[in-house]
Design a protein around this nucleic acid. Sequence first.
DNA 1: ACGGTGCGGCCGGCGAGCCCG
DNA 2: CCGGGCTCGCCGGCCGCACCG
Lengths: 327, 327
Amino acid sequence: MARTTLADVAREAGVSVALVSIVMRDAPGASDVTRARVRDVADRLGYVPDQRARLLRSTDTRLLGVTFDLHQPFHGDLVEHLYAAAAEHGYDVAISAVAPSRDERSAVQALRRERCDALVLLGPDLSTDDLAALGTDLPTLVVARRSGTPEVAAVRGDDELGVGLAVDHLVSLGHVRLAHVDGGSAPGAEERRRGFVEAARRHGLDPWVLAGGATERDGVRATATLLEASTPPTGVVAFNDHCASGVLDALLRARRDVPRQVSVTGYDDSRLAVARQDLMTTVSQSAREMAERAVAGALGLLAGEPARDVVLTPELVVRSTTGPAPA
Amino acid sequence: MARTTLADVAREAGVSVALVSIVMRDAPGASDVTRARVRDVADRLGYVPDQRARLLRSTDTRLLGVTFDLHQPFHGDLVEHLYAAAAEHGYDVAISAVAPSRDERSAVQALRRERCDALVLLGPDLSTDDLAALGTDLPTLVVARRSGTPEVAAVRGDDELGVGLAVDHLVSLGHVRLAHVDGGSAPGAEERRRGFVEAARRHGLDPWVLAGGATERDGVRATATLLEASTPPTGVVAFNDHCASGVLDALLRARRDVPRQVSVTGYDDSRLAVARQDLMTTVSQSAREMAERAVAGALGLLAGEPARDVVLTPELVVRSTTGPAPA
DNA sequence: ACGGTGCGGCCGGCGAGCCCG
DNA sequence: CCGGGCTCGCCGGCCGCACCG
């Protein structure tokens, strides 16, 4: 079954190919009656314009390539908003997934073959060198990490500040023994670790940092260590919502009352933060704003603007996993 | 910056366009030395073949279109394996996301414009009519749901049987008061509900079915009802892992010991099942096998085979959320 | 016979220019 | 002289073919 093309529609409607083309893309140059007739025939034949052929003609594809991690819910949120943000500027989005069995390079290569005008990489694991190389021959923007090279733009949250908000919040509730379950080597982990240490010091507290990670299990494991301490912390700042979820789980299992005995904060305000029974206090990165800034940034690059490093201010969302320090 | 094309490479290497084309697609007709030289120039210029132009020429695109739900972890697993399975048959995958703000139709339409050879829809919400219409002009296969129309193939787990496995397992552990937190109107919910009722009756038990849903919050809500009962069930079969996670959360909050007081089963064996501290007993659908069967099925359709309904046998994975019934 | 060239035509759209009532 | 409509060339590869060393 050969696909129906403009020519098929034209033949069936008894007009020229060009005319059908005009009708299909709502361009001026056809009377309303013909328009209606052509539309009709096209619908009847199930005609769908061939994006590839269409774009072949013009130098730009109005296509934004996006790589994302299949298993990161926050990336899902970002992708969703990227579709919307791109559409607002008349751009389409081509997504390419990264997963344990599919590395960043393959994902990027697939997009390059699609001739995307620009690339938006969500929390990529690429080295700065690879990134720089990519950036020199294709407008590239990274989200949720530092670009590290002048060729590549970035949109990210101010992680140091964000973690600081969580610490300030806990301190204002009277907590004096705080711990941070960190993200190990995950992107952003270093900034958050630093943010925690600095904020704690600012309040004259002793910062306790535990090795954690980006998953529930990491949170569970770190919590085991926490609970063994002679004087466990009353406030735990977790690397992200996943990690925090593990911390909460472990605390609950150990019969600790959250938030009466221990307060816990997450990071990202992902779906997870509101999935649990106890709604999580967390730091929100506003996926929508990030997505919008990312699209704007990528289009800026396309327009020849220099690569910028946009840092968004995160917000603390107080829910029910934090409360006054126990007496 | 105009993209580099075959012509650019040819000019730079001092050879003909046709020859470069031959080299780039590893076709016979060039000496090894020339091959190396051309490759070199191509790399230096950062040449990437234009997929669109290339495919424009041939009728088939060797491209498999896949729609999936951005926020369903199991879909993530499937997509990951679909990439691999498709690659094994020399096919590429184009993915298109479905999300609250992006409906199934848009996702499908985007893939049609890409001229995919066939469509694989993961747990689509489309009506049978829409599906049939789609299936008549493009080889289409649905995963994790019944197709309901002879034009569209399907690959799905035997949900009735799967839930039966969970029930059998609980019964064998001595449980006699079982409840099912169902999936409401989610795809597959009806089959699982039926599977639960039938399995319970088979064992001479009274099936208790509660209105649930596909999310943690649904599990939490349903559990509240369960706990109010004068004689709460000792075994809970949840619609899926998400829902089960909510059930576990609520039970833990209510100081119920899992599995000593209550046993809980999930469904899907998603990452979530092993994310929690207490590893979840759940019914596994083997994303890899599903993906492989889906690709095989789609390619079968392409080869002119009739649409089949492949039903895979799920397996029970016993972990630590189920145990002997309390005395 | 094999490595290589050059010439068209094709795919499915797009758009400039032209023609005619 | 304008607007509906058509003709034609082009985008970037692929492919067959004639032709040369």
